[in-house]
Design a protein around this nucleic acid. Structure first.
Length: 489
DNA sequence: CGGTTTTGACCTGCGC
DNA sequence: GCGCAGGTCAAAACCG
C-alpha cells in the first residue's frame, strides 16, 4: 500500500515496476506530506473510508469479549445484517481497488514502453541531426573549394581527386559509414570484422576525414564517452537490468584483479559494452564502466544505466562542441568537476572522457531508506535488492541527470534542461526554445527547492546503492554527498 | 544443443 | 621500429 496516495497500489515485489513505484511514490510522499495528496493526474486521491471503518469494525469485533451474549437474538441478527452489509461494501471496495490497481499497472507499463520508445527516437534524431550537420559541412567544403578554384581561374577539370571521386551519394555513404558503425550495427547483424573494415575503408577513403577522428567525431565520442560507476558489491558483477555476455578478460596494469569485458546481448548488434573491475585498494568496490548507447528498447530496470550513459555522453558531446576548436576541451571538462559534491566527477583524461559516479558512500541515505519505507510499505523487499538489479534504477538517471545538469550550469556546457530531476530522459544538446528552457528551469528549481526533495532523492538513490553495499551502513565518510550533489544549485 | 565463459592470440594506439 | 598496454577475437571448454 502507498499511504501517500491514499489508496492501495498492489504491485507484487517481483513485479519489475514494484520498486520503481515505491521510490516514486516515496518521493511524492516526501513532497506532499504536509499537503493534501494528489495522484498522478493531479486529482484528489480516492479514499476508501469503508475499508478503514470496516477493518476497525472487524478488529473491534475480534477483540470483543462475551459481554454481548446477554443481548437478545434480534439485536444479534441486526448486528449480523449490519456486518453483512459492511462486508458487501468492503468487497465492493476491494473490487474497485483491484480494478484501479489493474489500471495503474497498465498505465505504468504503458509509460515505461513509451519512455523506451522516446529514448530510442531521441537517439535516432540526434544521430540524424549530427549526420546532417556533417554532411552539410562536407558539402560546404566542396562548394567552397570549387568556388575558390573558379575564382582563381583554375580549369573546370582540375578538381582535386578526392572530390572527384566523391559524388554526392558517395559523400552520403561515407558520412553514414563514418558514424562509428553504430548505424551499421543497428540495421545489420553485428560484425566486428565489418566494423573494422568500415573504419579502415573510411580511413583509406579520406584519412583527414574529421568524422573518423575519435577526438572530433560526435558519433565516435558518443561511443567512446564513458560512464563509470563505483559501488560496493560482493557480487562479481552488478546487475543492471541488461543481458551481458563476457567476451574477454585481461589483467590490467597496476591492479591484481582482472578486468572483464562484457557486451550487451539484449539485441543483435547493440554496441554497448562494459568493463568490470575490482578496485585494487578496496576489493569490495566494483567499478563498472559503460560505453555506448543501446540501440533497442530497454526494460525499466535497465533504463537507468542507459539513460545515464546517454546523458553523460551527450554532456561530454556538448562540452566538446562548446569549445572553440570543436575538440574536447579538457580544461572545461576537468573544471566541471562538481563544485559541491564528490559523488560524480568528470574526467577528460585520455583516452576517453569519463563520468565517474562514486556510490561507495552515503550512509545517511541508506539509513533513511531503510527506516522509512520499511515501516510504511509491507511490499518493500528487505533487504534491498542488489545494486541495479531492481526496477528502482530509473531513479538513477534522474539523480545523475540532476548532477549533470548542475555540472552543466557550473561549467557552462550546453546541456538541455530536460535533464532535470523531473525528467529522466537523456539530455540532448540544447534543442528547446528559450522559453521552454526557462519553464523547465523553473520546474527544476521548484522541485529541488522543496525541502523534502533531498530526503526523497536520497531514499531513491540509496535504494539503488543499498543492495550493492550491504555493509556500508556505518561507513560515514561522507554523509551528505547526494544532498549536496543535487540540491545546491 | 545452444548459449556462455575461458583464454591465448591478435590488433591497435601510444610513447620512447 | 620496438615494446607495452588495452581491447577484441574466436576456438575450445563448460554448463544448464
Amino acid at each position: 500500500m502507498f499511504p501517500a496516495l491514499g489508496f492501495p497500489v498492489n504491485l507484487s515485489p517481483s513485479d519489475p515496476n514494484h520498486r520503481t513505484v515505491l521510490a516514486e511514490v516515496d518521493f511524492l510522499s516526501a513532497r506532499n506530506n504536509s499537503s493534501p495528496h494528489t495522484n498522478d493526474h493531479g486529482t484528489p486521491p480516492k479514499s476508501y473510508p469503508h475499508v478503514n471503518t470496516g477493518l476497525q469494525l472487524l478488529t473491534a469485533n475480534a477483540g470483543s469479549d462475551q459481554s454481548t451474549v446477554d443481548d437478545g437474538a434480534s439485536s444479534e441478527a441486526e448486528d449480523k445484517r449490519a456486518k453483512m452489509t459492511e462486508l458487501a461494501r468492503l468487497k465492493e471496495d476491494l473490487r474497485n481497488m483491484n480494478a484501479e490497481n489493474q489500471k495503474l499497472k497498465e498505465m505504468l507499463s504503458h509509460v515505461s514502453s513509451n519512455y523506451a520508445n522516446l529514448q530510442m527516437h531521441l537517439a535516432a534524431v540526434l544521430q540524424q541531426q549530427q549526420n546532417q550537420r556533417t554532411e552539410s559541412t562536407e558539402q560546404e567544403v566542396v562548394q567552397g573549394k570549387l568556388a575558390e578554384e573558379r575564382k582563381h581561374g583554375v580549369g573546370g577539370g582540375t578538381v582535386p581527386r578526392q572530390f572527384l571521386s566523391l559524388v554526392p551519394s558517395e559523400i552520403d555513404d561515407q558520412v553514414s559509414n563514418s558514424s562509428s558503425g553504430e548505424r551499421t550495427r543497428s540495421t545489420t547483424p553485428p560484425s566486428n570484422k565489418n566494423d573494422k573494415d568500415n573504419k579502415e575503408t573510411d580511413d583509406k577513403l579520406n584519412p583527414s576525414n574529421p568524422t573518423t577522428d575519435p577526438s572530433t567525431s560526435p558519433e565516435a565520442a558518443m561511443r567512446k564517452a564513458r560512464v563509470s560507476v563505483r559501488a560496493r558489491s560482493e557480487a562479481p558483477m552488478i546487475s543492471d537490468g541488461c543481458q551481458w555476455r563476457k567476451y574477454g578478460q585481461k589483467m590490467a596494469k597496476g591492479n591484481p584483479c582482472p578486468r572483464a569485458y562484457y557486451r550487451c546481448t539484449m539485441a543483435v548488434g547493440c554496441p554497448v559494452r562494459k568493463q568490470v573491475q575490482r578496485c585494487a585498494e578496496d576489493r569490495t568496490i566494483l567499478t563498472t564502466t559503460y560505453e555506448g548507447t543501446h540501440n533497442h528498447p530497454l526494460p525499466p530496470a535497465a533504463m537507468a544505466m542507459a539513460s545515464t550513459t546517454v546523458a553523460a555522453t551527450s554532456m561530454l558531446l556538448s562540452g566538446s562542441m562548446s569549445s572553440a576548436d570543436g575538440k574536447m576541451n579538457p580544461n572545461l571538462l576537468t573544471g566541471a568537476i562538481l563544485p559541491c559534491s564528490n559523488m560524480a566527477t568528470l574526467s577528460a583524461s585520455a583516452p576517453f572522457p569519463t563520468v565517474t559516479l562514486d556510490l561507495t558512500h552515503n550512509p545517511n541515505a541508506l539509513q533513511q531508506y531503510q527506516l522509512r519505507p520499511q515501516t510504511q510499505t509491507p511490499f518493500l523487499p528487505s533487504p534491498p535488492q542488489n545494486f541495479m538489479s531492481g526496477p528502482t534504477t530509473p531513479q538513477l538517471p534522474k539523480l545523475i541527470a540532476q548532477v549533470l545538469y548542475n555540472q552543466s550550469k557550473f561549467s557552462g556546457l550546453q546541456l538541455s534542461q530536460d535533464v532535470g530531476p523531473n525528467n529522466s530522459q537523456a539530455p540532448t544538446p540544447s534543442l528547446l526554445q528559450p522559453s521552454q528552457q526557462v519553464s523547465l528551469t523553473d520546474t527544476v528549481s521548484a522541485i529541488t527547492a522543496d525541502p523534502n526533495f533531498p530526503a526523497a532523492l536520497t531514499a531513491a538513490i540509496s535504494s539503488i546503492i543499498g543492495g550493492a553495499n550491504p555493509n556500508n551502513n556505518n561507513n560515514s565518510s561522507n554523509p551528505n554527498v547526494i544532498n549536496s550533489a543535487t540540491i545546491n544549485q
